[in-house]
Design a protein around this nucleic acid. Sequence first.
DNA 1: TAAAAGACTACTACTACTATAGACTTTATA
DNA 2: TATAAAGTCTATAGTAGTAGTAGTCTTTTA
Lengths: 151, 151
Amino acid sequence: MRLSKRGEYGLRAMIILAEPVEKNAMPVVQIKEIAEREKISAKFLEQILLALKNAGMLHSKMGVGGGYYLARSASEITLGQIFRVLDGPIAPINCVSQMSYEPCGCPDEQTCGLRLVMGDVRNAIADILDNTSLADVTKRQNTVRKKLGIK
Amino acid sequence: MRLSKRGEYGLRAMIILAEPVEKNAMPVVQIKEIAEREKISAKFLEQILLALKNAGMLHSKMGVGGGYYLARSASEITLGQIFRVLDGPIAPINCVSQMSYEPCGCPDEQTCGLRLVMGDVRNAIADILDNTSLADVTKRQNTVRKKLGIK
DNA sequence: TAAAAGACTACTACTACTATAGACTTTATA
DNA sequence: TATAAAGTCTATAGTAGTAGTAGTCTTTTA
């Protein structure tokens, strides 16, 4: 049940982009900065952020002092939205996908045991990803930091 | 969050192998029979069943009248066990894997927001797959069939 | 007008997935 | 005891997706 590197880097980047908003800091962050902080190839990250931009989740500013920033508030962007842009459907198998259903070719879909269980799995994952916003993530990070007495 | 064809076919086959036990029928089922019923390549399925056999989940009988049968009772084999043999770890990302942990290289694992959420996802999937046995699946199939008045 | 930033496209290396093929072994039974 | 039915095992091949590189273009600010 792998998350791709593309998905991983994209989610990490979005979480980073959600942080300054909370701190009321200058919200524009550059590719290079994220890449260095997460030790990721800047060129690869560039493609990922571009995809998120084209999906309407990020805005950008070109030229000197430019960079990326969230298109909506961190509480309005869910991990599920980001995931689907970068890694496609959440469902483990197409016949239980809400967003891109396809028959799987089993003899009888209605009574297919695998389908019933994978439907549960899909819902469990979607429940988490669709109900966790970037704001929830940064909030949780801060809670853990405080608990550990970091920063 | 894809389930591979290998995993899909293996799970389907195991569910089929769990059915005759319940019906007190002759428990030995041949590759060919499963392949035809599920419209799968018999040669591909062969490799999958062999892997499950080598993992101790299936026994087999060679020669005329031979075939495969469950090594343990259907209630003692979980979907999680089968999944791990065929598709590897359940965790979306290695740093939250129980069975095969590996650091993911993020600056601080303890306070990594992505890791916290993906840990939840891992647990949600594992909760389902590790607590669903083959017997649970066949039971559920029969419940649906009765409800629909099939067979 | 130069430098800093993103936009866009093409391409490449690698790996994993999905099979296919074939030769071999075991077993029942005619 | 010969034959056919079944699983065993290993090699290989095509394909698609993943992860990343490279290079050129465009926009913006100082």
